[in-house]
């Protein structure tokens, strides 16, 4: 198994955190992972993006022409990276900030109102955890338990924080149903 995921959004939306958390969780669960942040002039006020490879085999190329999944947290990211999704791949978009405008009939689409769900839970900060939940729910590459272990270790064990993250992950997993 080897899955490549590009995560893209505005700086500040937790793009890098999503990528890193997926990597941490895979590593902690005994799997392989490669987190590759992209730094460039686009960091200043524009889009931020990273590519994560999750695998149970040795990872070769850090980046390929196509990815299995695009997680788009805003409109410009969807437009910029949609073409890089392999046929049959998955587009997971944050429908709170981003609208599907078509253009690819050969990919699976899942829309999740991550920011709305995060506000319902009580903190806009957990929108990225909602997205992680949606991704692992749809892809099945990591279990809820494996993800929570990594979240606990990296984002802290403070009970109120942990509860909110746990809820965000669960809501993300439940909300994600692909439409083709």
């Amino acid at each position: 198994m080897e899955k490549k995921i590009t995560i893209a959004g505005f700086g500040g939306q937790g793009v890098m955190a999503i990528g890193q958390m997926l990597g941490y969780a895979s590593c902690k669960a005994g799997g392989n992972a490669l987190f590759l942040p992209k730094y460039g002039p686009e960091q200043r006020g524009g889009t931020a993006n990273c590519t994560v490879t999750l695998a149970d085999v040795e990872i070769g190329a850090p980046e390929s022409r196509y990815v299995d999944t695009l997680i788009a947290l805003n409109q410009p990211s969807l437009e910029r990276f949609l073409g890089a999704v392999r046929p049959g791949g998955l587009v997971l978009l944050n429908s709170s900030l981003c609208r599907w405008t078509g253009g690819r009939e050969d990919v699976k689409l899942a829309e999740i109102p991550a920011d709305d769900i995060a506000r319902e839970i009580g903190s806009p900060k957990v929108a990225n955890i909602v997205v992680i939940g949606a991704y692992i729910g749809l892809s099945g590459v990591l279990t809820e338990r494996q993800m929570l272990d990594a979240i606990e270790e990296k984002l802290g064990k403070r009970p109120e924080l942990l509860e909110m993250n746990r809820l965000a992950l669960k809501r993300g997993m439940e909300s994600a149903t692909p439409r083709t």
Binding site: F35, I59, P62
Partner: peptide
């Protein structure tokens, strides 16, 4: 720069 900035187990 990729080896420098990437994370791996």
């Amino acid at each position: 720069g990729w080896i420098g900035s990437m994370m791996e187990p």
